[in-house]
Amino acid sequence: MFILVNLKAYPCDPIEVATAARDVAEASGVRIAVSPQAADISRVADTGVETWAQHVDPNGHGSHTGSTLAEAVAEAGAVGTLINHSEKRLKLADIDGSVQAAERAGLETCVCANNPAQIGAVSALGPDSVAVEPPELIGGDVSVATADPGIVTDAVDAAANVDEDVEVYCGAGISTGDDVVTAEELGASGILLASGVAKADDPRAALEDLVSGL
């Protein structure tokens, strides 16, 4: 299982979370990555933890003020990027452009989507992975794997029907080791979470709990 921790714009200490994630990954053998704000990518990458960007724009170099350039986040130390998170929605053409931009910069890609139908659509764009995240469960206390396991299994099937090489991650409400085990049992190969770690009083303990059943 792959655990991807999105720090969003939460007022957490990205270095504390990154260091904890690095140490728990090394101790458990579980792949764990941290996705900080763009301004913190370099500092987080310097801890040695696997580092992802929260977003990249579809454009390349040029007159694009305010854009997040795929090449720039790669140079800062990111090795992957989220695309089309529920809080950073893109049009389908821009998702395609962002996937291509990320691939051009050598970044691994995870495209987020609300439901299995959208999972199928974005899987056709050739990302490395997709994450199913019902918006109503994001940031909540109930995981999608528990609230509606059919969404996860249907998302896995939808992606496989388009491209068997696209991995499916489970997001929204994931916060415990039991959630991770349930997601794995439903066919997900990773999880995407935020508040369960970023807002935890003890991020290291939260991460240790997440990997406890793996």
Results as ranks from 00 to 15, higher is better:
Phe2Pro: 00
Leu4Asp: 07
Pro14Asn: 09
Pro14Val: 10
Ala21Val: 07
Ala21Phe: 05
Val30Glu: 09
Val30Ile: 14
Ile32Cys: 08
Pro36Cys: 10
Gln37Gly: 06
Ile41His: 07
Arg43Thr: 11
Gly48Met: 13
Val49Tyr: 00
Ala53Met: 15
Gln54Gly: 11
Val56Gly: 01
Pro58Glu: 07
Ser67Cys: 00
Leu69Met: 05
Ala70Pro: 00
Ala72His: 06
Ala72Lys: 06
Thr81Gln: 09
Ser86Asn: 10
Ser86Gly: 10
Lys88Ala: 13
Arg89Tyr: 01
Leu90Cys: 04
Ser98Asn: 15
Val99Leu: 14
Glu103Ala: 14
Val111Asn: 08
Leu125Met: 09
Leu125Tyr: 04
Gly126Phe: 03
Val132His: 01
Gly139Cys: 08
Val142Asn: 07
Val144Ile: 07
Asp148His: 03
Ile151Thr: 12
Ala155Arg: 02
Val156Ser: 02
Ala158Trp: 01
Ala160Val: 01
Asp163Trp: 06
Tyr169Phe: 11
Asp179Met: 01
Asp179Lys: 04
Val180Met: 06
Val181Arg: 12
Gly187Val: 07
Gly187His: 08
Ser189Cys: 04
Gly190Leu: 00
Ala194His: 08
Ala200Cys: 13
Ala200Trp: 12
Ala200His: 11
Asp201Lys: 08
Arg204Ile: 09
Ala205Arg: 15
Ala205Pro: 15
Leu210Trp: 08
